[in-house]
Every structure is written in C-alpha cells, then in structure tokens.
Simulated scan of single mutants.
Amino acid sequence: MKPLRIALYQGPAGVPRDTAVSLDALDEAAGRAAAGGAGLLAAAEMYLTGYAVDAPAAVAEPADGPGARRVAAIAARHGIAVVYGYPERDGDAVYNSAQLIGPDGTRLANYRKTHLFGDFESAHFRPGDTPVVQAELGGLTVGLLICYDVEFPEAVRAHALAGTDLLLVPTALMRPYDFVPLTLVPARAYESQLYVAYANRCGPEGEFDFTGLSCLSAPDGVTRARAGAGPDLVFGDADPALLAASRTELPYLRDRRAPLYRSLV
C-alpha cells in the first residue's frame, strides 16, 4: 500500500461562532493540501465554531447538519478526506465531537470526546461513552480521539488493541502544556505502535492561548511533521511499510501480559 499523506491544518483561533469564516478557511486549506498530494486534511478541535464559545449549545448542530454538509462539499470538491471538530447536538445533549468525511463527501465516522477537560468543557458538554470509533481510509484503519483523550494511555492503547493504524486527534491544547505535543504524543505513538496525527489550534482566543505545535508522530517515535506556534499547514506520510516494520521490531502489543494489569481497571 502507498503511504497516506496527511496535511495538518493549524489555523489561527479565529472568530468564535463564525462558522462561515472557519469553513472558507477550511476550503482554502483543503485546496492547498490536495495540491500538495495529501489524501487527508486534519483540522482542530471545535474547528467549526471556535473553542471559546460562551454557549456551545446555541451553535451546536447534528452530525448531518449544515456545517457537516458544507465540509462534505469541500472534501468532494478537492477529493480529500477531512477530519474536524465541532459541537454536536443530539436531542438535548451537546457533545464535543469530531467527524471524518471521506474524499467523496461521505461521512465515515463521528466521535464524541470521552474525557472532558476542565470546568469549561464539563459545564457545556456531555462526555461520550464510545471509546473506539474507526473507519477505513487509504488502506489504513483510522481512529478518532480529541485533545485531552490522547493524554490517557488507556484510550490510545484501546485503539491499538482494536487495530487502529492512524489515530486522528483534533486538538485545542493551551499554554503552558507544550510538553504534550513535544513529548507525550510521540511517546503514545511509540508505546502503542501507531501513527498519531495531532492537529491543534494556535494563538489567543477568549481566555485561552493555544500552543500550536501540531504534529504527526510515527510508531518508531519519530515526529514526521511539526508545525510552529503560528498558522501553518504541514505535511507528513503515514507509511504502512514503516508501521509493519516497527510493529515487528517493537512487539509491545504481542508481549504485553494483560492478566497482570486487571487491577488497573
């Protein structure tokens, strides 16, 4: 199989609640990503509306809502898969969600953040209860987590055990937690033997200041793409051959002794 080229879109924090601005910027980024040979564009957590929204419930929409339909049109027009974050409404519940759209505009997967971070998220969102959500893309098994989720080794290991090859993580990581993309994300990729595509926001928004530093980390622990602190579009490849070789050399999943860990759960 050919490597899947991934474009990490680290846009500025933008204007909260202004989905039109976010979608226009996504359209432009998708065009640049496709021109650069990418088969997947990864955008940040709460990309559609901005993260610092006073009332996420007021701008939340269903998984098949107008924002999703516009992203689907963008994906189909440029022939590129897109993963992005948004506030999802399902009846009376509001979730911090991420959705994967295929290159033909088909909705492939929708994930609801299971580990909510801080008072803001806990006040506005209901946690999801499905830890592993997957889809097939470019010959790889792709999984979804959101930001804080990846900081739990159990969440990433659950994906590894379920066969995820590439973990997509739309993110809104704030300062001063730069060590997460610099140290923790490469370690997660290495210890669970998968690729991690971590797409962050950057710059100030409301009371938050996002770190940027989006990255694609490989199962050999090497970061294959890294953004800076400002707006960026960076490219990296998820290579099935490297994945297979790394899993052979470092067989953590085979050698783990699961019965010893039962007390942890």
Rank of each mutant, 00 (worst) to 15 (best):
L242K: 06
Y51Q: 02
G31T: 08
R247G: 00
T106P: 04
F179K: 07
G236D: 13
C215L: 15
R257V: 07
C215M: 11
Y95A: 14
L166T: 08
P204W: 09
Y148Q: 13
G50L: 01
F208A: 11
G85W: 06
R256T: 05
A81V: 08
P127L: 00
R262G: 14
T19G: 00
T114R: 01
S192R: 05
G14W: 00
A20H: 10
A13T: 00
N200T: 13
L184K: 06
A63M: 10
L216I: 14
D239V: 04
E154I: 11
Y148L: 11
M46C: 15
A155Q: 05
A42K: 01
P3D: 06
Q10R: 01
R32I: 12
M1Q: 11
R201F: 09
V185I: 15
L145Y: 05
Q193M: 02
A38L: 10
D129K: 03
A225R: 07
E61Q: 13
L253M: 00
G37S: 12
V15G: 02
A172L: 06
A160W: 04
D92T: 14
K113Q: 03
D239P: 02
A42M: 03
G228W: 14
A60G: 01
G212A: 04
G163M: 02
L182Q: 11
E151N: 13
V150G: 01
D237R: 09
A68R: 10
L233A: 13
A33F: 05
R226P: 13
L144E: 03
D255I: 02
L40W: 03
R69Q: 15
I146Y: 00
D27Y: 07
Y86N: 09
P176C: 14
I146P: 01
R201Q: 08
L41F: 00
Y51S: 05
E191F: 01
P240T: 15
A98K: 00
A43C: 12
M46H: 14
G206S: 04
G11T: 07
G37T: 14
A258C: 02
P103D: 08
R70Y: 12
F235P: 12
P240R: 12
A98F: 00
G11C: 09
Y86K: 06
G79K: 12
